[in-house]
């Protein structure tokens, strides 16, 4: 697999990502980051910045993270892009650790803590902010043909520590 998409955004589960590895479980946004961090340690690289540009952890319960297997790297995201197999991409590691530093010290909004209308908007915005990385990875907007799909919020799974790839 070249790409892995981690997300707790229920909208992502409605969409189709042929050939990608997916970790789309209803966990917290912090857990999504931890899952991504674990992959970075296994030699994967982030395709986009793990923080939002206008939201803090208590303002957006959803987080999506798209990573690429470094050995199959076609997008040279970093000047330090590694050539050897399974070497840790230091730019990705730096960014994901800095992001975790923020998520682990700030209050994190969990999906069930927000009203339904708020959730639907947050899910839509998360998807919108992921469009560019998804497009650069070659995603053809499968499942988005009829616009943003109907939104059904989840019950949060009791899962922490980034072992949420199942």
């Amino acid at each position: 697999m070249v790409f892995v998409l981690f997300s707790n955004n229920p909208l992502m589960r409605v969409l189709r990502f042929p050939g990608w590895e997916l970790g789309l479980t209803p966990v917290s946004s912090l857990d999504v980051l931890l899952a991504g961090r674990n992959r970075v340690h296994a030699g994967w690289q982030l395709l986009h910045h793990p923080l939002y540009g206008n939201y803090r952890p208590h303002q957006q319960p959803y987080r999506s993270l798209l990573l690429q297997n470094s050995t199959a790297s076609t997008i040279q995201a970093n000047t330090q892009a590694t050539t050897q197999q399974a070497q840790v991409n230091l730019t990705s590691l730096h960014l994901v650790e800095e992001a975790l530093g923020i998520y682990q010290t700030a209050p994190v909004l969990l999906p069930h803590q927000a009203p339904h209308s708020f959730l639907r908007d947050c899910a839509t915005i998360d998807l919108e902010l992921m469009r560019l990385p998804l497009a650069q990875a070659g995603w053809a907007e499968l499942g988005l043909e009829g616009g943003i799909p109907p939104f059904l919020p989840d019950t949060l799974l009791p899962c922490t520590g980034g072992n949420c790839e199942a």
Partner: peptide
């Protein structure tokens, strides 16, 4: 600009 992808940032 300030795009989200790392490739664009670079």
């Amino acid at each position: 600009n300030e795009n989200v992808t790392l490739a664009d940032k670079q």
